[in-house]
Amino acid sequence: MDTMVKLRDLSKTYRRSDGSAVEAVKQINLEIYKGEIFSLLGPNGAGKTTTISMMSGLIAPTGGDAFIGGHSITKEPMAAKRLMGFIPQEVALYPELSARRNLLFFGKMYGMHGSDLNKRVDEVLAFIDLTDRQKDKISTFSGGMKRRVNIGVGLLHRPELLFMDEPTVGIDPQNRRRVLDTVKQLRDEYGMTILYTTHMMEEAQELSDRVGIIDHGELIALGTQGELTQQVREEDQIDFAIDGRGWSSELEARLLQEVPGLTRVAYAPPGHGDDSAGEESLAALTAFAARGRQALPDIIRILNDAGVEVHSVKVREPDLEAVFLALTGRALRD
């Protein structure tokens, strides 16, 4: 498979005013292949936007380099930038200008002009379904329409590579659906390579050919969805909501000892964890077992024996959320 993007030890360190350093991005290495949708998944503040900003040449890396189609973004920025389209998280448009004027202007900034540019603007307007509103000012558009123009600008020069930085943040489900469909359409019909950053596990799951998981500026996992879930494949995750009053470390030891295949138990006391809302004394117990469904009866029996009331049980198939949880011990949306 041809490589479209290659990151080599890409790093960004900010200096605080007190002299201390903040490593926003720590030596990321990864490759993105031609024609794939690659998702960079991570919670807010993980370093996704910093990474994509360095890759697009918006900010300079403090270490390492990014190669776009073989061109170094630091040494041959023009050649690299010509290959890529960029769709920022914000609606980066001139509110005073019409949709068409915005497209024309940014098209010129990519070196397009004349009838070629005009034709292309028509195509893009048709693609984002705004041909009838093209003469209206952006300031009169709804949020979803602005998003579409925002995407349209990134597509103007038929880039081989498209960077999309959290394009669904803050929009309603209907428009979000539309964005996701567009992303797939761009890959399937136009063969574009797409780097998509998100903190939404479902989006990454739906779209991605491959996923990179980023946390605290570090790339902690990389691969296809299958490869990633493989890492937690042997273990199913069983979530219990229990009455925390009977819980003890002796009970934990007994569970691990007596239940075959049980590898790990995580206990969150009442008031913590998202399941406890509403019922005050409920604690969350998460158990990881090689064969979850087989282990389940044993666990429930031991808990009953100990007088711990089980309120609900959920067995979860491994997904990216589970991968993130397994890798960091935290939920993605914390």
Binding site: S56, G57, L58, P77, M78, A79, K81, R82, M84, F86, P88, E90, V91, A92, L93, Y94, P95, F106, M109, Y110, G111, V153
Partner: peptide
């Protein structure tokens, strides 16, 4: 603030 400057910065412009 409205990110149009950044949009220029990612275009192939010096």
């Amino acid at each position: 603030r409205q990110w149009t400057l950044q949009r220029l910065a990612v275009a192939p412009l010096r």
